[in-house]
Design a protein around this nucleic acid. Structure first.
Length: 277
DNA sequence: TGCCAGGCCGAAA
DNA sequence: TTTCGGCATGGC
């Protein structure tokens, strides 16, 4: 029975340090929540699950097939973060940033969800981003049952494309609502093809996504990094523009993994309320 | 109350 | 090319 299978508990062996807190709270995603049952609950690719850790590994609620097709790639488990982060430790600043976020991984999120998330993120704080996206999913997403609770899938672009700005008003997203709507319409009309962008190199894909309303360099690179898994895309944070020369290295020097390096810096700077001067 | 938040856009300099 | 005001909202 599907019901029983869905509640299978699977253990995943990982030979690297993994921190669910750093993965889900580093600012790359906004929909995973700590669970009173332990670990975090969330939804990806239309599947709800709970993830938690014990001494002998990572546990989650899923079928073996779902682990293989969804959760293993979503958690980017085939990449050697230990080796990558070691390569980032090029100085005292990066050593601290990497140590602070130890166990962080870049989730391979759905492009559409990442795009909407970072459209909403602009000039906004993380608690409110979470609030807006929660409302968005509750109003327009498919309800999913998990351990007696109801979670919501991310609304499809096809569904959103049929909505009006008035429908989106309850989100209290302000001027960002029109960006969500026009992005959904572009996907629904097949003017925007995520898999096409995935097949391009980063500068080409960046140029492509920046044709959307409300997508500048920052939102574009967040989308490329978190939605398309392009690890050489690096969102240039306001903080980094100001203080980068003071604290942080030139991101471009990290080459194919500049985006990952950037995320360690972002998380460290935010967590320690790092100031310039 | 005022400042700030994973910015973007169009106009002006 | 860089700079600047406006845009919506609410957390702190």
């Amino acid at each position: 029975m599907e019901q029983i299978l869905r509640n299978d508990t699977i253990r995943i062996d990982t030979n690297e340090t993994i921190s669910l807190k750093h993965i889900f709270e580093c600012g790359q995603c906004f929909r995973w929540k700590p669970s009173p049952k332990g670990g975090y609950v969330g939804v990806a690719f239309g599947q709800a699950t709970r993830l938690w850790q014990q001494e002998d590994g990572l546990y989650l609620l899923a079928t073996p097939q779902q682990v293989k097709e969804i959760w293993h790639p979503y958690l980017d488990l085939d990449r050697d973060y230990t080796a990558l982060t070691q390569a980032f430790c090029t100085g005292e600043f990066m050593e601290k940033a990497v140590a602070y976020g130890r166990g962080l991984r870049i989730l391979q999120q759905e492009p559409w969800e990442a795009l909407v998330s970072f459209l909403v993120s602009q000039c906004n704080n993380i608690p409110r981003i979470c609030s807006i996206l929660d409302t968005f999913c509750k109003l327009f997403g498919q309800p999913l049952e998990l351990e007696g609770d109801v979670l919501y899938a991310f609304p499809t672009p096809q569904r959103v494309a049929m909505l009006s700005l008035e429908d989106l008003a309850p989100l209290r997203a302000g001027y960002r609502a029109k960006y969500i709507l026009s992005a959904a319409q572009a996907v629904a009309r097949e003017q925007l093809d995520f898999e096409g962008l995935r097949g391009m190199n980063t500068p080409e894909a960046r140029q492509g996504i920046m044709e959307l309303q409300g997508v500048g360099r920052k939102v574009a690179d967040c989308f490329l990094l978190f939605g398309l898994g392009k690890m050489d895309a690096f969102p240039v944070d306001t903080w980094m523009k100001k203080a980068g020369a003071h604290y942080a290295p030139d991101l471009a020097s990290f080459g194919p993994y500049a985006g990952l390096a950037q995320q360690y810096i972002f998380y460290y700077a935010r967590g320690t309320k790092l100031k310039m001067d």
